[in-house]
Nucleic acid binder design. Structure first.
Lengths: 202, 202
DNA sequence: GTTTTGGTAGCACGACTGTGCTAGTTGGAA
DNA sequence: TTCCAACTAGCACAGTCGTGCTACCAAAAC
């Protein structure tokens, strides 16, 4: 073997190249050749790590998903449900460059997944996981009297609001600063608490 | 001239073909050839109506945007702010096949617009218009005591929730029935009213 | 009648696509 | 040393891409 390079790391390097191409040129320019060039590999070499383009796309999407879920899992869970919710939601919104990139790429894959069965399945799984995470947050808040007791309804509302805000942040990054996004988080959580309190009094 | 066909109608027919290709095969298969075949035209004929692919894409996106905004404008505005809000929000969510198709295609264009300056501009304009519409609804609700008085904050919240729900409906059409979507609208508007009332009492 | 105009059709070109395939190269194992 | 597996490189093929271009046709204008 030549210079020993961890094959796992190589595959991740290729994913990084995919991400750069998507962000710079758009999903429609993600070809085997472009990715190979971006990764500094020959076509043949790239094909040694990914036998087909579809395998490459699936691995790239899965890697992005894994990274986001790993970051969430690594959070030191706050005991206070309100703090916990702020923590998790802040982790899921594009508050820094890394997450801005992730968010853009996520959207690109999400769109492509509509017409690609394999990507569709990955997307559905990620959707379900995020929905479960939202439900968990709402359950905690609700138990503390900080959210209404209709768990499914508030879960759906939080989930839709969260993804919508992420889409908006990707569409108009100039209008959505880290400050405005964190403020939006606080506002939604405040609203849930106020509503819960009002419902309790009736 | 041969059979006289309204050139405006022809262009709209081509847009319909674009929509079908996007829904059936995905945005990456929208080529001049595929669209021409889908529209029952030769390549040369298609190019008589659209000199370039980019002009075709821009016109198609603009047409979708116009159609949605025209449908909104055609609504008989209810006097009651709550009914008005329900009316408008229901018009913007994919409650029937026509709007499901529009929603899917809208998402595809939205993704493509990230790397295409011309589409980006159209998208930004549509975003601003929808945001203004949300602001209008919130202003009416707020004046009637049915929404908190922080107009910008509630506008952003409504807008994000709305677009997020539309994305979710496109991603998991099976989980988002017309019934669940209209229920979600009612729930969010109820929440705004409850919150407004609670804030007024403090 | 001829000319003009609006529309249709499709070939040709060069560029790019994914993938099959062969050849070569390198470093550790036998 | 020989051998082998991991890896790199890139050519070849068939197909698709957007677009430039010419040819053709039918009806309206002249």
């Amino acid at each position: 073997m030549p210079i020993v390079v961890d094959p796992v790391q190589r595959r991740l390097d290729v994913v990084a190249a995919v991400v750069r191409v998507i962000r710079r040129d758009g999903m429609e320019h993600v070809s085997v050749r472009n990715v190979a060039r971006e990764a500094g590999l020959s076509m043949g070499s790239l094909r040694h790590y990914f036998v087909s383009q579809s395998e490459l796309m699936i691995f790239a999407f899965q890697t992005i998903i894994d990274r986001i879920e790993a970051r969430l899992a690594a959070l030191q869970p706050a005991a206070d449900p309100r703090q916990r919710a702020e923590q998790v939601l802040a982790e899921l919104l594009p508050l820094d460059d890394e997450r801005r990139a992730e968010n853009e790429v996520w959207l690109a894959f999400t769109a492509r997944a509509t017409a690609d069965p394999a990507l569709r399945e990955l997307r559905a799984g990620a959707y379900d996981n995020l929905r479960a995470g939202c439900r968990h947050l709402i359950t905690g808040l609700s138990a503390a009297g900080l959210a209404p007791t209709d768990i499914p309804a508030e879960t759906e509302r939080l989930h839709a609001w969260l993804d919508g805000l992420a889409v908006h942040a990707a569409m108009r990054a100039d209008l959505h600063t880290p400050e405005s996004l964190t403020a939006a988080i606080a506002r939604h959580l405040d609203a849930l608490a106020i509503e819960a309190k009002a419902l309790r009094l009736t």
